[in-house]
Structure formats: C-alpha cells, structure tokens
Design a protein around this nucleic acid. Structure first.
Lengths: 293, 293
DNA sequence: ATTTCATGATGCCGTTTCAGTATCAAAAGG
DNA sequence: CCTTTTGATACTGAAACGGCATCATGAAAT
C-alpha cells in the first residue's frame, strides 16, 4: 500500500465525474497529475479501477466497490478530525462539578441546566461535597470545578462569584420568637443552636461565629446534623434553632418559621472555583459561560 | 488537511508505543522522521495530539479521540482494498445463469449448489430461457452464462460440455406401444407427436428431425406446448407421444410410460456457453469450476 | 549537587515524489 | 479525411521526505 490520501481523493473525484479533465479542474490541478495518480493507484492495487476504452471512462466492478470504501474513508477522516477538534475545544467531554448544600439550593441548578442546553456534548457529573473536600479534589485533579462557600483566598485557583445570600434564622413554630416579624442577632444569645459539624462546615462557621461574637454571644450548639435537610428536620423536632441562607430556608416547611435578621449586613458568598494548573477541556467553556451570565 | 496516510500511520504507531523512538523502530524509519511527521500533523490539525512533558509522552484528550478515528480509518482502508480485490477476482458479485428445460432437469442443479457452497460471496441469478433467447442475451451482455442445447458453432463464444443424454420416447399408458420394453424410431412413423414450438425449440428440433428422417418418416405434430411439463401433461392427456431426454422424462408420472429407443446413438448435448468479449467477473470462477468437475 | 543517560527536537543534505507545461496518440464526429 | 476531444507520456523545477549529526532538556544515578 504505497499511496496516500491524495490518490484516494483523486480517485473519488474521477469516479464522480467519470472524466479526467473535469476531475482535474475540480481539484484545481492539471490533468496529467490525475492520470499519473490513478495509474499509480491501479498499479499499487493490482487491478484496474476504470475502463478507459477510447474516450469513455467507466468504473470497473472493483472500482465501484473501492469507491464506496473510499467515500467512507474520506468522510470518516473528516468526522475524526471534527470530533478531535471538538474534544480539543472542550465541546465534547465530561465535567465534574462539585456543589455544597448552599450552592445547590441557589443559582446552581439553573446554571447547569442552561449550560447543558448550550453544550449537549458535555456530560455534567455533579457530586456533593463540603467546601474543604472540594478544594482537595480540585487540587488532586479529581474535580474540575467546585461550587463552594466563599470567600476563598488560595493561590493557583481561579474563581467567579455566584451568589451572596442573606442569612436567616429558622425556628420551630412553637418557639418564643416564632411570632416576631424579624429579629436581631442579639435576640439569639442563649438559644440552642442546630448546625452542621464544625469540621465539615468550617467555612460556614468561619462566617457565622464572628457575627455571633459581635452580637455578644457564642452559639450554644446542642445538635450537629450532616446536611441542611437534617438540620431543618432537627429544628422542626424542636431541638433548637438554626441560621441558614435564604434559598436553603425559603421553601416553607410545616412546623418551621423563617425570620429575617435585622442589622445584619454580612452575606454568605458562593463562588465557583477551579485549579488553574489542571488541564482544562470543557472547564474553559463552563467558566466562560459563568462569566457571560 | 495537508497530510497523508503516512502521517496517520505514524501517529497511530506513536500513540500505541507512547514512545517516538520505539515507534520509529517499528516503522523502520529514523526517529526524526516521526518527530517531524507528528509535528506537521499537529500544526495542520491546529491542536496537540501528545503531551510531551519531559521524557514522558501521553495522548491528549483530542489525541485519544483522533486515535480511534485513525484506527477505524486504517482498518477501513484495508477492508476497502480487500473487498475491491475480491470483486476484481470475481469472488464477490452476481452471476446471471440461463437454463433450458433440458439443463435444469439434468446436472445443473448440482453444479449450482456446489458452486454456491464454494463461493458464498457470489449471488447466483438463474433465469429460464430457450437456447435462442439465451444466445441473444449473452451477446447483449444481459446474461453471463447460458446452459443451452448444443452443439453450438458460434465464433466469440466459449463453451464447455455439460451432459449428453439419451433420447427416450414417452407415451400414455393406454398407447399401443406402452407394453413394449423398448422401441425403434421406425415404430413411431405415423404417430401423433406433442413437441415444443418449432420457433422456440429450434435447437431440439434440429436434432430430432434428422433422426426421424433417417427412420423414414417426418413427425406429425398435433400439439405444441411451451415447456416440458406441459408436453408431458398433454401426452398424459392422450393427445400423442413425445421424445425427450432421459432426465426430463425419468421422474415417473402417473399415466405415462417411458420407453428406451433402440439403435439410436444420438444424444442431446447440453453445453455451458458464454460470450468471450463480455467483461468477466464471477464468470471466470464459474467456468473454472465447470472445467474442474 | 553534579554527572550521566535517555529522549524528543532541529539543522543540513541527498533522494524521491509530485505537479505543471508541452506534446503525443487514439478515438469520436463531421 | 480532417478536426476535436481526451487520456497518456516526457521533461523540468519545486516541494516533501528521510537519514545523519547534533542539540536541549528532564530524569535518574552517584
């Protein structure tokens, strides 16, 4: 097999035109080049592709068979290139997206849905994880992008702000504060708190504790629960109250009352974050999508 | 796309070895040729196929995608060539085979069955036709090979004898000759004959009439029927008697008696025949098969 | 830390391949 | 019989390609 794609292309052109000169014109090449290429191809293959009887050019049976193979070959070549190009540009591939309880209750579902619509070739692989675990996974390369509680100050990571939500207080309906239209942080001094575990929810705690301290107390945690749904369940079970973001607490649940907190300017930020030294395929498109929102 | 199959082959080799030098060795070329070919391919494609970080060579995501396309391409190329070669050699294709009533009752079914078993890639297309029509179809190129009543003397046609069958007489069971163990041609003088039409069965008639003349009579044809089954039906209906070959008459039918003819040395020859100026694909194999029987 | 080794990239040169121009030969058409 | 059309061939210059020698760099060994 001592011939190249060039021979194949010439052969297909001649087979379609059944005319050497027209094929040459179509290929922007002189006619002798075609004659030689076809001749070479035939001698390499060991059988004739065309019947040149007089000035009539016709495919032989073997030529007709070879033609379908060659067409498949050329289109296969094109699609192989296009697909590889798509993979290179990140338009095809998979993207592992981490999320926290706070992120998944906010803007993230909309972001993912819209991205999926724009880039159906990319398989999104969402996985739950607290901020700390996500940061580790990003650095290890087992996660492509994380949605975590911010702010984060780490070198080598790219970021984009997603949301900054007001904190609200959630109490059970029998609680002494349940009838109030709003509260102040100072009202919560001495109350029993239900929170996420300090180790896993460290970023949330780092936001919450200074706020409490400024209001003159330190939260008295009587129960730890491992996700926001469990926290709300324990609050409804009258184990205590909690502080969460608006979007987590907002879907009203029976037995629970959500109270806005007056005089509290702090908001809980959620940021998208990624490791800049990791190879970026679909991630680039995703970040671009975030920035264009 | 300014690259050839050579680049593809080199790329696949490097992708499989993940090592430029080993790939070069495998391809029996020097290592710089590989470096340049891959470099050229990458610059043509516009994206990297390999990550060359240090002395480690790894496929990029795009390279991995391109690799599967390239493998498909190469195997596709090989099968395209093999298939075309098979078509050229006549191992794949179709063969239009004509047959007469005499041929299809004799050796032909066995020949076709055996050929089909040996060459499953060839589609046999049997079609019925009297000798004259088959010869015309052969000359026109609408038939590849004919099984006709011989002998034929025509230039430009190849032939091969298939069978030479004894002629027998068929009478109805009530006929005056029905009890005889055998007859002679002279016994048939004055009898009513049922034969195929003179126009279509001309070759058969050309054999039969001289025989009758030599026996001292000319057959008195009272009915013409358009195939051997119809002839036998009319004989059974007591319209007359007929003369056919052994294999046509042998499957005994109720109401009919087959009589050997003594002193008759002539046999009815069936020959395979083909037009030598027609392109021969599967026909060559078929003729070879006939000659090897 | 320094040396050594392995490995891919690059410069240079001779060979091969390839395309363009001009021309030929054969067949179809008038 | 002459003209036109069309594929094949000869020759020439350019581009592609491969091999040799060498360089640059990163990993392993001391």
């Amino acid at each position: 097999m001592k011939f190249g794609l060039r021979h194949i292309r010439y052969f297909v052109a001649v087979a379609e035109e059944l005319h050497f000169r027209r094929a040459a014109t179509r290929l922007n090449v002189a006619q002798p080049a075609i004659s030689r290429a076809i001749g070479h191809l035939e001698s390499e293959l060991g059988f004739a592709l065309f019947d040149r009887t007089g000035r009539r050019v016709a495919l032989t049976a073997a030529g007709a068979s070879f033609l379908v193979g060659c067409r498949r070959l050329l289109t296969g070549m094109d699609t192989a290139i296009d697909e590889a190009r798509d993979v290179d540009a990140g338009r095809i591939g998979s993207l592992r997206v981490g999320y926290t309880d706070f992120a998944i209750s906010g803007a993230l579902p909309g972001i993912l849905t819209e991205f999926q619509r724009l880039h159906p070739g990319i398989t999104l692989k969402p996985r739950h994880g607290v901020t700390r675990d996500q940061l580790i996974a990003l650095a290890e390369g087992t996660l492509d992008i994380g949605f975590v509680t911010g702010p984060i100050a780490l070198p080598g990571f790219g970021q984009h702000p997603i949301q900054a939500e007001r904190l609200v207080c959630v109490v059970h309906e029998g609680h002494r504060l349940a009838r109030r239209a709003s509260i102040r942080m100072a009202d919560l001094a001495g109350e029993d708190f239900v929170l996420g575990p300090a180790r896993d929810w460290s970023h949330f705690h780092q936001e919450l504790y200074p706020i409490c301290r400024r209001a003159g107390f330190s939260p008295n945690v009587v129960q730890e629960a491992y996700n926001s749904a469990a926290i709300l369940g324990l609050v409804a079970s009258r184990m205590g109250l909690t502080i969460l973001t608006e979007s987590v607490a907002t879907p009203a649940r029976p037995g629970l009352v959500t109270l806005p907190i007056k005089g509290l300017s702090e908001r809980l930020a959620t940021v998208a974050i990624w490791a800049e030294d990791q190879p970026d395929g679909p991630r680039r498109l995703f970040v671009k999508h975030l920035r264009q929102r």
